[in-house]
Design a protein around this nucleic acid. Structure first.
Length: 624
RNA sequence: GCCGACAUAGCUCAGCGGUAGAGCAGCUGUUUCGUAAACAGCAGGUCCUCGGUUCAAAUCCGAGUGUCGGCUCCA
């Protein structure tokens, strides 16, 4: 992102350089003011970035003013705002943030111009060192050594000044502090200098700034909305799952959460059955010998849970792939056997850092809807095409539109280059044949496989990486010595495709909760309809109606409590039950029901049977 | 793992050195109601755990556990 921003900013910086020759000093023009949408439409994202970066400078000015002696780290523009890393004598509190914000507003009101100064390297380094800004000195020394490696002299460096504040900075900036739009400081968090746990921990202050008040408000609304939809909160509210300290990083699924899980799993099983997958199950506790053979032992050991027994070391499997090869090799395979599609709902354990755990999205154990497909090289393209179709179908169940990326051979890759070339070409042809566009990510594949990643944007416009398809040319086939006999009886290596559609079921459920804000589509709603009898005398008919609906496979509850109807509706609404069926004298007499949807829509009354047929059909159709 | 914050009833939170509180949920009773909260009563807590300071600790200090915000989107 920052790289992109910097590249995009390059022409501006170039123009500035020319002006510098004429005048020594260049003031960059401020971006045109307007809504963020206008800026984006105008392709002016980098100008918004310039403003964000400028705001970071103003924040640094304020912090330096309030906490003299503060050492500055870096302060870039980021996706929705900016941050700056500081080394401070004490931890910042929320009150400090307000004080910093107030001080920043003064600087903005003063409308200090941003002034660009270009100085020879050594002078700049001396100045920074004189200010006691050790981190900046380190940045400069890195620049110098990089230049030296490239056989170039130390570069000229630039400072940006506004008012009393001066900072080593590549720019660009807005013309003056007054051009900074409405902003807000958001949070403070720890961050290592250069992301390195061995280096000092700095305090990172995050803020956001936008071109206009509406844009800031919209951002803050999205942020608040995301908080409301937080799956950790909704999971408790909707009684789907809970977490307990006896097993950090692992959810306890309640009946409704487990039901949701089984519906997702069932739907995928149905698709896989149609596509000729064969479900397998492999052991969870596996000898370390397997991981030595697969190569995971060296690379992944510290993330594995180890178990000792009778002088042997076992691990809880962190991935399924090596084990499916044992099934492949359990008998001699013929070219006629392929493609062989093994799918497995395997429970995996990965010992993530305790600080990295978070709800359902970062867990220590999860289930992957994994599959390993062994194909002949001549079957590769057709199989990829089929897989792309599977992705589209499965994501369609949730009304999600998948986006695809394709990552090709990295520099340090293993395996036959000709095979790589062929696999990449066939994959691109499969995309073309499926009429699917994709983003090409050159050299971004894994060391053993070109890789297709699938992304979605959720209801709040957040991007999530979901499914993945890896075309494994060498890892499983070579390391586990997989072969099949071709027409001439000669042993040939198959290609192994690793694929997961949901990825981790846990994470997928977390994303669905946030995407739908807990209001699941009918087909996965744990309770699809609730019958609400108005008075006691209506409870028995309510049970009758529920039976009719249940006989069509619908998941139905009856609220037989002595609450008032209004309260029953409110509770059902809070549980995001798709259909509420209020039953009183009128309905019972006519044997009808008039559904109220959770959106508050009142649907016309219809007979119990036709209602049951309609809802059952809606559920069977899946779809978000 | 590291930095910072937080941990009080099932949930959301108040109390911040002097015997533990509210709303919601729960239970019991009354109410039988027409599309987002009927009324009353009752019950509910090793104030995360362990240690320390103090006449006295939910409150202050230390350690542990868990949760939350982060830990290159690089001048």
């Amino acid at each position: 992102m920052a790289d992109k921003a910097n590249q995009a900013a390059a022409p501006i910086a170039g123009a500035a350089d020319e002006a510098v020759e004429a005048d020594e000093v260049e003031i960059l023009e401020a971006p045109a003011r307007g809504s963020v949408d206008e800026l984006l439409d105008a392709g002016a994202h980098d100008e918004l970035d310039a403003m964000r970066h400028s705001t970071a400078h103003v924040m640094a000015e304020a912090v330096l003013d309030l906490f003299p002696g503060t050492k500055l780290g870096i302060g870039p523009a980021i996706a929705d705002g900016f941050y700056y890393d500081f080394e401070l004598p004490r931890a910042l509190t929320p009150d400090d943030l307000s004080a910093i914000e107030a001080r920043m507003r003064e600087s903005v009101s003063a409308n200090h111009p941003f002034v660009r100064k270009e100085v020879p390297f050594d002078d700049g380094r001396a100045a920074v060192e004189g200010q006691g800004q050790g981190y900046k000195v380190e940045i400069l020394d890195d620049l110098a050594s990089k230049a030296k490696e490239a056989g170039e002299p130390s570069p000229t460096i630039t400072f940006y000044e506004h008012g009393p504040f001066s900072d080593l900075c590549r720019g660009p900036h807005v013309a003056s502090t007054g051009k900074i739009g409405p902003f807000k400081l958001l949070s403070v968090a720890g961050a290592y200098w250069r992301g390195d746990a061995k280096r000092p921990a700095l305090q990172r202050v995050y803020g956001t700034v936008w071109a206009g008040q509406e844009a800031l408000d919209a951002f803050l609304w999205r942020r608040a909305e995301a908080r409301k939809r937080d799956h950790r909160k909704l999971g408790v509210q909707l009684d789907l799952f809970s977490f307990h300290d006896v097993s950090p990083g692992a959810p306890f699924f309640h009946p409704k959460g487990q039901l949701l899980w089984r519906l997702l799993e069932g739907s995928m099983r149905e698709l896989q059955g149609r596509r000729g997958y064969l479900e397998v199950a492999t052991p969870i506790v596996v000898s370390e010998r397997l991981w030595r053979q697969s190569g995971h032992w060296d690379l992944y050991k510290e993330h594995m849970f180890l178990v000792e027994s009778e002088n042997q070391t076992f691990s809880l499997k962190p991935m399924n792939c090596p084990e499916s090869t044992f099934i492949y090799r359990s008998r001699k395979r013929s070219y006629r056997d392929l493609p062989l599609r093994y799918n497995e709902y395997g429970r995996l354990h990965r010992n993530e850092l305790s600080g990295a755990l978070s709800g359902l999205t970062r867990v220590r154990q999860f289930v992957q809807d994994d599959a390993h497909i062994y194909v002949r090289p001549d079957q590769l393209m057709a199989e990829i095409q089929a897989l792309l179709g599977e992705v589209r179908e499965a994501y369609g169940w949730f009304g999600l539109t998948p986006r695809f990326s394709f990552a090709t051979k990295p520099d340090k890759a293993i395996g036959d280059p000709a095979l790589w070339e062929r696999a990449e070409r066939l994959t691109m042809e499969a995309f073309a044949a499926s009429d699917i566009s994709y983003e090409l990510k050159p050299k971004d594949g894994t060391f053993y496989a070109p890789k297709i990643d699938i992304y979605i944007d959720d209801a709040l416009g957040r991007e999530w990486q979901m499914a993945t398809i890896q075309i494994d040319l060498t890892m499983l086939p070579e390391r586990f010595d997989l072969t099949y006999d071709d027409e001439t009886g000669e042993g040939v290596r198959p290609i192994a495709i690793h694929r997961a559609m949901y990825g981790s079921l846990e994470r997928f459920i977390g994303i669905l909760i946030e995407h739908f804000a807990g209001a699941f589509p009918l087909w996965i709603a744990p309770v699809q309809a609730i019958v609400i009898p108005i008075a006691d005398r209506h409870v028995e008919p309510a049970e009758e109606l529920a039976s009719v609906l249940r006989s069509r496979g619908l998941r139905v509850e009856v609220d037989g409590s002595n609450n008032r109807m209004q309260n029953k509706i409110r509770l059902a609404q809070e549980q995001k039950v798709p259909y509420m069926l209020v039953l009183g004298d009128r309905e019972i007499e006519a044997k009808t029901a008039a559904p109220r949807t959770r959106a508050g829509e009142q649907q016309p009354a219809e007979s119990w049977d036709s209602l049951a047929d309609r809802l059952a059909a809606e559920a069977a159709a899946r779809g978000g």
